[in-house]
Design a protein around this nucleic acid. Structure first.
Lengths: 194, 194
DNA sequence: ACGTTGCCGAACACTGTGTTCGATAATGGG
DNA sequence: CCCATTATCGAACACAGTGTTCGGCAACGT
């Protein structure tokens, strides 16, 4: 039983991923060509296509790496059935830990592909603990859970991307706190009354 | 002095725009080729490039059309220096009026290009009446205006795109109300107390 | 009616994509 | 340590789409 897989495979995939990320930062995802990746990673053309259908598949594999790592981190901090307040903080912390990758995937130069997948991911995560129909927000109106999830996920993703593109001008805790303050002003006012 | 421009020019541009929008709905922006547009619009290749640098330029010209119309509508309803609460409602109303175009530009098939520009537009609009540094939200924490604008703009855009992609399951007023309820739960709770 | 201007259409060079295949060399199990 | 396996290389190829050029024709507005 092999320990994980052929060493050459790991090497190739890692080289390709690193090459792509570096190139995105240099010239932007759209302008990166498969040939660029090949040259930078020093990998043969046929080899590339043996691993990935196209440029986008490679990009998504990078994203998947991050995603797994994030899930692992979430499961670690909160063993089972977590209260959902943890998620935003975990996201910001994770992004801060992996600044270079996030810069490439969510930065100005990154394509919008990853942002889209992140959006889906966040919407699912935030909408997880919500009944299909229920009043939302600390206060009044009857807002369907799906809509609320959409609202909060978009807002969170907006802050995250803004943060990345401004090159992390604040700490992850500050960002998480700010998000909470904007998302649940009522709660915050109560909880932090001097 | 010509009334606007050569009739042929208007015809060509209109045909191209309509062809693009139709094709986006059919096969998605990415898959649309310049040749597709040419065939559908029944316009010569060289003519296309006499008007637009590439596919994206045509797309942006469509977006610009919408944008101007929206601004005009905003200026109409609120003559000068409007309170910013009107903007979300105006956006939802505008989208509802131009459902077909919004479906193409912000729908699942639309590229992410327009969404990006819309995001910029909304962030600017919502951040307009805010001092560079100030406490935000009805309650506590000291949130910079730029961050708050980012938050609200992303949330609004998220709801808008969700709405379009669900094929407008609610009225524009309901959407605007829901947005307000989620964005300013404190205000809502006060304003709508029975 | 006329000068101007936009349109056509076919040809062209060019860039990038994705596939194929035989030869070579690294790998991990026995 | 050896060997069967398997990943990689590299070069060639067909293909799709892009953006440009230019002469002739037709529609336009005045």
């Amino acid at each position: 039983m092999p320990q994980a897989e052929d060493r050459r495979v790991r090497r190739t995939r890692r080289n390709l991923a690193e090459a792509l990320i570096g190139l995105i930062l240099q010239k932007g995802y759209e302008r990166v060509t498969v040939q660029d990746i090949l040259d930078r990673a020093d990998v043969g053309r046929s080899t590339f296509y043996a691993h990935f259908r196209d440029k986008e598949a490679l990009l998504l594999s990078c994203f998947d790496g991050l995603r797994e790592d994030l899930n692992q981190q979430l499961d670690a901090t909160v063993p089972t059935a977590a209260p959902r307040g943890q998620i935003p903080a975990a996201i910001f912390a994770h992004a801060y830990q992996h600044r270079p990758v996030y810069r490439a995937l969510c930065g100005r130069q990154g394509g919008h592909i990853v942002s889209g997948h992140l959006h889906t991911l966040l919407t699912r995560s935030l909408g997880l603990g919500l009944a299909p129909e229920s009043r939302l927000g600390p206060a009044s109106a009857q807002v369907p859970a799906a809509v609320a999830a959409e609202f909060y996920a978009s807002a969170l993703l907006g802050l995250l991307i803004w943060w990345v593109r401004q090159d992390f001008p604040h700490g992850p805790d500050w960002m998480a706190g700010t998000y909470e303050a904007l998302a649940h002003p009522g709660l915050r006012a109560t909880a932090e009354m001097p």
